[in-house]
């Protein structure tokens, strides 16, 4: 069914995402901002490896694949050759913070003039809910069945946005969520601001979004949103971390 309110940059097809997953909202926010800023003919997105691997099936603008963790290296190659385009990556916590940490850190440190949208759901969703670098202390996962325990050598949740904010090349670092309409609207504004930064050549922008994964968390969609508000934000406080 045609939907008058659907952004043109989001194709009118069903996604493969689980009910209550955050990707649907976030794909739409990206598409809405691109439409609003009239960027659909200028944007090149880079899709991750993870649940959003086929984001290019849903967005209606140019999109490039990237190997697991390498989206920001791929985006660097694109942006340096096409500075006139708006380039963004859309990556999960395993992709961005674990296997791709070197690329993440150095792309930010070079101050590449592009945008990174970081979907933090505190787990590896696609592969069945293993521990991610962002998994909360005590959070059970497929590979931490008794809960993440730093004393067992499983480490602590990595606050990537705070770490990247220390780098001179980073213009904008922010953490938001989509747990309520108010937070969704805020997240939309942050994405818009990050794209504007890029158009103004300000450097690297990262928007970290705390996003629900009801299937892996074994919670109802509503309870997953509650868990973000009640638990996740304690480890990952919301707000602007850096705005240069």
């Amino acid at each position: 069914m045609p939907n008058k309110t659907r952004p043109a940059s989001l194709k009118n097809i069903s996604t493969h995402y689980c009910s209550g997953c955050g990707h649907g909202i976030l794909h739409r926010l990206v598409a809405e901002v691109i439409d609003e800023m009239k960027l659909s003919e200028k944007t090149i997105g880079v899709a991750p490896v993870g649940c959003a691997v086929v984001a290019y099936d849903y967005w209606d603008f140019d999109v490039c694949e990237a190997a697991h963790g390498r989206a920001l290296a791929v985006a660097t190659g694109i942006k340096r050759c096409r500075p006139q385009n708006v380039v963004f990556t859309y990556q999960g916590d395993g992709d961005l913070v674990s296997i791709g940490l070197a690329e993440t850190f150095h792309t930010a440190n070079r101050g590449e003039n592009l945008t990174c949208i970081f979907i933090n759901n505190a787990c590896y969703g696609m592969t069945g809910g293993q521990m991610a670098p962002t998994t909360l202390v005590g959070q059970p996962t497929a590979t931490t069945p008794w809960g993440r325990n730093p004393k067992s050598g499983e480490g602590w949740p990595v606050k990537l946005s705070e770490i990247l904010a220390t780098l001179s090349g980073v213009a904008f670092a922010v953490r938001s969520t989509i747990s309520s309409p108010r937070e969704v609207i805020k997240t939309r504004e942050y994405i818009k601001k990050a794209f504007s930064n890029q158009i103004e050549n300000k450097g690297f922008s990262i928007i970290e979004v705390l996003s629900p994964c009801p299937t892996i968390w074994q919670k109802s969609p509503i309870n997953a949103m509650k868990w973000i508000d009640e638990e996740m934000v304690k480890t990952f406080p919301l707000g602007v971390i850096k705005d240069k």
Binding site: C64, R70, A102, E103, H106
Partner: peptide, 26 residues
């Protein structure tokens, strides 16, 4: 033109992937 000293060979080949995807010679 563009020269980048990458942080690793892995990053270098993936930068090359992105640049090639834009249609330039890499």
């Amino acid at each position: 033109r563009v020269f980048i000293q990458a942080e690793s060979e892995i990053a270098a080949i993936n930068m090359v992937f992105g640049a090639s995807a834009c249609g330039v010679r890499v």
